[in-house]
Design a protein around this nucleic acid. Structure first.
Lengths: 341, 341
DNA sequence: CAGATTCATGTGAACGTGCACAGCCTGTAT
DNA sequence: ATACAGGCTGTGCACGTTCACATGAATCTG
């Protein structure tokens, strides 16, 4: 009766008035409920329900200096990620894991130099509490700038740059995954095992190749440079690599390929060369993106636990925001045996 | 020298002091620069550069009531979208189109009832200025609640619900796309053209079937119910539908399939039945998700302009936020002729 | 030239919340 | 009975910005 007709959203004042307590008490109930009598807490909660009050995050952020939100930042040539179905699993997993903590996720794509600048400014201005970073690049400049500004950052995948050793990250155990696959090939009786490695400026590429070499060595097989080709993770590249390998070593009986896309290309090359899979040549891939690339024959591959990776990324990020210093989490991969090996 | 060692982020006060003007003037420069003399504006800009000032959005939002951010909301059984590579194009397009306006994008996934509630509360609390909605569902309850609360919402794809006529949306012209494809089949001399339609509770499913019927009628061909099967947009469904069609009408010479996934399934069925494509039977798909599903033979299909759709969604949303009432945008599709038709 | 109009600028008051501090009450030990 | 401790509660202030209003100067109008 004292107000104009227009109705505003209820504030903490309204709740306090309805509950018959002070703003401070309402605020305490909202943030953990310590030092509040049960009776007051109940009255406040009832008032919140009755008024339909919901906290104004802007006002809260203004005073606390924290935003209550996190960013999912993509700095890589984005195409590779947006084409990878596993990327979606990661993005969705992070979104939902954060949602469970009532933290909204901002999606940011740093393509151009200009976008990078804008994003760094936005983040370092404190409009985001932390950053989940996806970048397979060596020594990402954006990551460095954010880290320098003190923003909690958790990367997906092992950073290549040794200087970035302090960058928190969550990754699958590429090396052990590769080892498991090569052991699987060995146990199936294969002895001439070639590999199509990933780019050697990505940690995944390096570690998967390392795993391959180690297991061969442990099995007492000689390592031959000529059994190694290096591709670009893409389908066409995989095909070309396989063709070169076949030309050089017609006697190969197994192929460990560092990505499913390349493995698909290799399968095409093998088909063209008249080899049967897995009869003549066994093929093992990596990534388990095959679900989307599904076509016969079903690819045996190494699955990275993307759902768990996303959960751990969020956990580590929240830890870092809270001031704890969890640094690196390495998660086990899983060998998925299908038809090709 | 008057401060403790700790250095704060520069505020609008600092800029004003450095520039030798008042806060109000700085604020005016920041928001459009009207009613500011060129000299003052230049001084302010110089001060901003010197101090490294960046606006505190929380403080701004607190007073303006607007957040300067938008949400990308997914309410559908999410799997279908996350598996569709076109979805990524849409998501990326929206992110970048908004970034050009310096508006960050929040990704929200409304899976459970509980998540829906949380999201509605968050959005209606004014923490987001507008919502880009992806939902092929009939009469989405979340959309209805948001619209009722007055939040600007722009949907992707035509809403099914007639009540939702007022819901702004951007969609490809499914009907015309279907018409074009069927005309293409006719012009290649096909006369027994069957169709595998999409679910008839989705607008796309309805419109694509309507386009098919119209063109047949215009060509003077009789419409036969038995030439229509209805699938679920999925691969297995497409295969089953094709098998039933072939059993019923061994003489079909063309198949218009309402999704590429179903078309892939249909190709398998045709292969099993010993029909050559496009020799015996021409196949036309829809969606152009084939890029990711690539395998021989390359699918002739109808491409929806997802990049333009995302741009238009953002444009319409910004219009709505600004108070204008752009309601619906329909964009033309593009026939992509490859090998199967 | 008086009055009206426009424009550039400064000033105070919010916006809604969390936090520090002070005061209150109750119970217990001296 | 008094002092003290400790938990509960209320109050003022600050956060950084925008907006409405006031002021003074400059320009226009007849």
């Amino acid at each position: 009766m004292n107000n104009p007709a227009r109705r505003q959203r209820p504030t903490i004042h309204d709740v306090a008035r309805v509950a018959g307590v002070s703003r401070g008490t309402v605020s305490r109930v909202l943030n953990g409920g310590h030092h509040v009598s049960p009776a007051a807490a109940e009255a406040v909660n009832a008032a919140i329900r009755r008024t339909g009050y919901v906290v104004n995050r802007h006002a809260r952020s203004l005073i606390t200096g924290r935003s209550g939100s996190a960013a999912f930042l993509l700095t890589e040539p984005q195409e590779r990620f947006f084409e990878d179905p596993n990327f979606n699993v990661l993005l969705r997993g992070c979104t939902q894991a954060l949602a469970a903590h009532d933290i909204p996720l901002l999606l940011m794509i740093a393509g151009s130099r200009d976008e990078q600048r804008r994003i760094v400014r936005y983040v370092t201005a404190g409009h985001v509490d932390g950053v989940l970073l996806v970048s397979s690049h060596t020594g990402d400049p954006v990551a460095a700038q954010l880290a320098r500004a003190g923003t909690p950052v958790v990367a997906c995948g092992k950073p290549m740059d040794p200087r970035a050793g302090r960058l928190a990250h969550v990754a699958a155990d590429d090396r052990e995954g590769a080892r498991e696959m090569v052991r699987h090939l060995l146990s199936a009786g294969r002895r001439r095992i070639a590999t199509i490695a990933g780019p050697q400026d990505t940690p995944g590429g390096v570690d998967r190749l390392a795993g391959y070499r180690e297991v061969l060595a442990e099995a007492g097989l000689p390592f031959e440079e000529t059994l190694v080709e290096t591709g670009d993770y893409g389908r066409a590249g995989g095909r070309a690599c396989a063709e070169r390998l076949l030309a050089r070593h017609p006697d190969v009986d197994a192929l460990f390929v560092a990505s499913d896309l390349m493995a698909r290309g290799a399968l095409e090359a093998l088909g063209d060369a008249g080899r049967s899979v897995p009869g003549d040549v066994a093929v093992g891939g990596f990534d388990d993106s095959s679900a989307a690339l599904a076509s016969a024959p079903a690819l045996t591959t190494v699955r990275q636990p993307w759902d768990r990776i996303s959960q751990e990324m969020v956990r580590v990020l929240l830890d870092r925001i809270a001031g704890e210093d969890t640094s690196a989490v390495i998660l086990p991969t899983e060998l998925v045996v299908r038809e090709t090996a």
